[in-house]
């Protein structure tokens, strides 16, 4: 495969890499940038464990090729935590509501929740589920994840009110 140069931002940091055009963003994040928080669950865009934000849209790193990254701003789970590496309000809400078990799907769910709240998502349970509908979890049965999202929205609104 021909090689290409692509420039993009990950968590506000600039990168330029040379790679093959169909190399997956997931491999670039994990192998080149050593950002291991984005996970491979299925490798075919089904499970959502590799969810990241690209230019603000929820996207799957396992089916995003390098060629499509030019000029893009990518946000991964490593860019979600507070500056000191402490959990953000969404991540704290997930902990407090028991939304985490094996944790392998968790970064993906946190990204989907971040996107939902960023877009002004409400506490409506159906809307929350739609926003998380591309992410699979096999441990929790989803109930506590929905609780976690609801709690995060409450905390977000409290923060905004202040």
């Amino acid at each position: 495969m021909n090689k290409i140069k692509v420039s993009f931002k990950v968590n506000n940091k600039d990168y330029e890499i040379e790679t093959t055009p169909l190399r997956r963003l997931l491999d670039i994040l994990r192998e080149d940038l050593k950002l291991m928080g984005t996970k491979e669950g299925c490798g075919e865009g089904e499970c959502g464990a590799c969810s990241v934000l690209i230019d603000g849209e929820l996207s799957l790193a396992c089916i995003t090729p390098a060629t499509q990254l030019e000029g893009k701003e990518i946000l991964t789970i490593e860019g979600i935590s507070d500056k000191d590496g402490e959990p953000s309000y969404i991540q704290k809400a997930f902990i407090d509501k028991g939304a985490v078990q094996c944790g392998f799907c968790t970064p993906g769910f946190v990204m989907a929740t971040h996107k939902y709240i960023k877009d002004g998502g409400s506490n409506d349970e159906t809307k929350i589920k739609e926003a998380l509908s591309g992410n699979f979890c096999r441990c929790t049965g989803y109930a506590k994840i929905v609780d976690g999202v609801k709690e995060a929205i409450v905390r977000h609104n409290d923060k905004e009110a202040k």
Partner: peptide
């Protein structure tokens, strides 16, 4: 359009 994949797929 809401039934195409899940929300992750719909963004792409």
């Amino acid at each position: 359009s809401k039934l195409i994949g899940g929300y992750t797929i719909q963004g792409m």
